[in-house]
Design a protein around this nucleic acid. Structure first.
Length: 476
RNA sequence: GUCCCCAUCGACUAGCGGUCUAGGUCACGGCCCUUUCAAGGCCGAAACGGGGGUUCGAAUCCCCCUGGGGACGCCA
């Protein structure tokens, strides 16, 4: 049987890293088993739905490379189907109409909670007579539909990650499957969808484990075998609480915008809660090859940005510089270094050179783009502390002399520049160490950076000579 | 309150009864390399939550406690 899995977000927020990991596990599982990865939007909650979020979620998945084979489907387009399936349960006497109002139910729930009891529906409408129903109808009440749940017994969930999990029917109640306005509830729509879409493996977040017995009951009511369930552990913030906005970046887009590479996020997310021996770095191909639900660690995992950053740097160091250079352009704009048009006009070769020179010093594309400010423009500032420390009168004189020595270097390459610089310093009885930092500050405004001569080459003769000879103006 | 899940270094994890004086990675500390910062190399500190069992033997199996998380909606 072909493996068919689905990722089913609800369009109530951006795609966050927890959801992204769930999607990734589904995708990997599908690819590994040559199966089908289906995308489905669970948008039956008309109050909280935000249709404008659908495209960003799709774009997040595309950016991560998690392309779906089928869909996206929308539950909101499948209302007739749900109605039909609900009708069937009603006809077979497996479900019944409930005329209790949300207000009445809320009242009962509060009372139960206050009495420190588990809130459960009391079966009030389970055995209504025709006259009673008519009376409710006359009052103008719109019934919801509830599933008849056995009062006793147990139901077993065989979870691919957690093993056997047992639930007692006494924990369950006759839950609502269709709202009084005719829209299906989550548990009902999910099961109808998973059955009709032929889902073989339900890989989803841990928080749904408690819903699973209800869903299995629905499978039984419909007379279909349940799929394999796999509940993946939650992704937690540093303080062990559920990841949320107050913890900083959580949305996939935020990481993209900060200059995280998709392959780094994918690698990180895959390795969060899953492992394959001691291996840390995985290509997508390796991930597909080695992924298994059995190897998913069952406990919740804390999202560690430091490790993500380390992986990001790894991919910055090892990816094709040309590709990375092109990725830099939007960051040039975002950092205010260039206008859109200017960023577009920067020769690709320059960007590639920046990548090669700085990739070992940057953890993100943002950091990688930063040096372009002093490399490619004159609109940069000097670190006054550094200037004060390194640009002494003696050093300034030396640098001005150096400007003269470098004026006619040909070609203007790192190797030639180093030769000329060392020769000049030797003639002055100085070493490179004596002037390197001062020179760096004069050229870049800062004390940290790439190799001095490589920096000069990339900067170009005009900027180097100009900055060295005008260095006196920086004296304070 | 009830139910469910989880429990190895600060973090992610390896470990699936003896090979564990518990391994790897991130972060952290030190040293080396070095024109700075990085990168890299080497070294180091750092964990089986507690208590009972089972067993010749337990990080590994069972129970209890504790701790953390989740669910208990006409939300998903």
């Amino acid at each position: 049987m072909t493996v068919r899995v689905r990722f089913a977000p609800s369009p109530t927020g951006e795609l966050h890293v927890g959801g992204a990991r769930t999607a990734l596990f589904n995708w990997l599982f599908a690819r590994k088993h040559h199966g089908v990865f289906i995308l489905r939007f669970e948008d039956t909650d008309i109050e909280r739905n935000r249709p404008e979020l659908i495209e960003p979620i799709l774009e997040s998945l595309r950016w991560l490379g998690l392309l779906w084979d089928e869909g996206p489907y929308f539950q909101s387009h499948r209302m007739a189907l749900y109605r039909e399936w609900a009708e069937r349960l009603l006809k077979e006497n497996k479900a019944y109409r409930c005329y209790c109002t949300p207000e009445e139910l809320e009242e009962k729930r509060k009372r139960a909670l206050a009495a420190k009891q588990k809130p459960k529906y009391d079966g009030h409408c389970r055995h209504l007579t025709a006259q009673e129903e008519q009376r409710f109808l006359n009052e103008g009440r719109q019934p919801a539909l509830r599933l008849k749940v056995p009062q006793s017994g147990t139901i077993v969930v065989e979870d691919a990650i957690r093993g056997r999990v047992e639930f007692d029917f006494s924990e369950l109640d006759d839950f609502i499957i269709v709202r009084s306005d005719g829209r299906p509830t989550y548990n009902f729509a999910v099961v109808v969808d998973d059955i009709t879409m032929g889902i073989t493996h339900v890989i989803r977040a841990d928080e749904h484990l408690n819903n699973t017995p209800k869903q299995i009951l629905l499978y039984q009511a419909f007379g279909y075998p349940a799929p394999v369930f796999a509940h993946v552990p939650m992704v937690l913030a540093k303080d062990r609480s559920k990841l949320s906005k107050r913890h900083g970046a959580t949305a996939v887009f935020e990481f993209r915008d900060r200059g995280i590479l998709p392959e780094a996020l994918v690698n990180y997310l895959a390795r969060l809660g899953w492992s394959h021996g001691d291996q840390e770095i995985f290509s997508v191909q390796e991930l597909i090859e080695h992924f298994s639900l059995q190897a998913v660690h069952p406990s919740a995992a804390i999202f560690d940005e430091e490790k993500l950053l380390w992986l990001n740097q790894h991919y910055l160091k090892t990816s094709d510089p040309k590709r990375l250079g092109e990725l830099l352009r939007p960051f040039l704009v975002k950092l205010g270094i260039f206008s859109e048009a200017e960023a577009h006009a920067v020769p690709g070769e320059k960007l590639t050179q920046i990548v090669v020179l700085f990739r070992e010093r940057a953890k993100t594309l943002t950091e990688l783009a930063e040096p372009a400010r002093y490399l490619l423009t004159d609109n940069f500032s000097y670190d006054s502390e550094a200037a004060q420390k390194f640009l002494t009168a003696e050093k300034v004189a030396l640098l001005q002399g150096l400007a003269g020595a470098l004026a006619s270097v040909e070609p203007f390459t790192a190797a030639e520049l180093e030769r000329a610089t060392r020769a000049y310093l030797e003639s002055q009885g100085k070493t490179l160490k004596d002037v390197a930092q001062a020179c760096r500050v004069a050229l870049t405004g800062r004390t940290a950076g790439a190799g001095l001569f490589e920096t000069m080459e990339l900067m170009g003769r005009e900027r180097v000579l100009g900055r060295l000879s005008s260095v006196a103006s920086l004296l304070t």
